[in-house]
């Protein structure tokens, strides 16, 4: 079983500290949700773990199966088994989904190894059927002109093909109506299992009705200030983030 360990992680953008010491261990098979208001560092945490060059790790450690990933480029981290589902996936005009995914699959093969094209398409179509995605989709340019729902479904399709050990899902519910949300959640639930650890980042409790987490963490001002099981999400929904704020204020007095 794989482990993703985040240890006292501090992240800055430029000179500005955003994440101020996050510690969290995710086991393969677990679903963790991080909730919190906007601007508390949730997305920064996900992007930095995935290796975005604009996010500077000033302290702490990220270990994948006891090996530090911090010296790795984003592509090495991905090949090591990490996956970032983007809040705002890039549009890449002129690059078809089929070619893009093919390059991603090929990047995981050893030098000189030939991609079995027939096998690749068979697997791609099977995953698309599973996610109820039309096969014509593969000929379209990556995310270009996609609706919010299509973009998120495209992210899930990539995840299904690449079969990561750990998925960091950044505000996967943003911009989705209930139907689209349900489709995306169904996709994640289908993949859920002992081979996949998930870090779900969300602002709203709504997503957690569809993807039920094993653990819920509340992020506030760059730190995880509260952890619990799924009932914490419901409590937050009922009491609002001000409740956390007040508790925090009381604790620090």
């Amino acid at each position: 079983m794989s482990l993703l360990e985040i240890k006292d992680l501090h992240i800055s953008i430029g000179d500005k500290p955003i994440v101020k010491g996050v510690t969290l261990t995710i086991k393969q098979g677990e679903v963790h949700a991080i909730m919190g208001p906007n601007g508390t560092g949730k997305s920064t945490l996900a992007k930095a773990i995935a290796g975005h060059p604009d996010y500077i790790i000033t302290d702490g450690e990220v270990l994948l199966d006891s090996r530090s990933v911090l010296a790795m480029q984003a592509d090495e981290r991905a090949r090591a088994g990490m996956f970032l589902a983007f809040q705002y996936p890039s549009e890449i005009p002129g690059v078809s989904i089929a070619n893009f995914l093919r390059a991603a699959v090929q990047s995981r093969m050893t030098e000189g190894e030939e991609l079995d094209a027939a096998g690749y398409y068979k697997r791609l179509y099977a995953k698309m059927d599973m996610l109820k995605i039309d096969r014509k989709f593969t000929a379209r340019s990556v995310n270009e002109g996609f609706s919010g729902g299509e973009k998120k479904r495209c992210e899930i399709l990539q995840m299904a093909i690449l079969e990561p050990k750990f998925a960091l899902m950044d505000e996967t519910d943003s911009g989705l109506d209930i139907d689209a949300l349900r489709i995306v959640a169904d996709g994640v639930n289908t993949m859920r299992g002992p081979g996949l650890g998930v870090l779900l980042i969300t602002h709203y409790q709504r997503l957690l009705d569809y993807i039920v987490p094993d653990y819920v963490h509340v992020m506030w001002d760059g730190r995880l200030v509260k952890s619990g099981d799924k009932s914490l999400a419901l409590e937050l929904e009922a009491k609002g983030y001000d409740w956390v704020k007040k508790e925090l204020a009381a604790a620090t007095v």
């Binding site: 984003a74 592509d75 890449i92």
Partner: peptide, 15 residues
């Protein structure tokens, strides 16, 4: 585009 580049890299595709 640096974001496009990061997007592709985040799927395992080297620079």
């Amino acid at each position: 585009d640096a974001e496009q580049e990061f997007y592709l890299q985040s799927r395992g595709i080297a620079k």
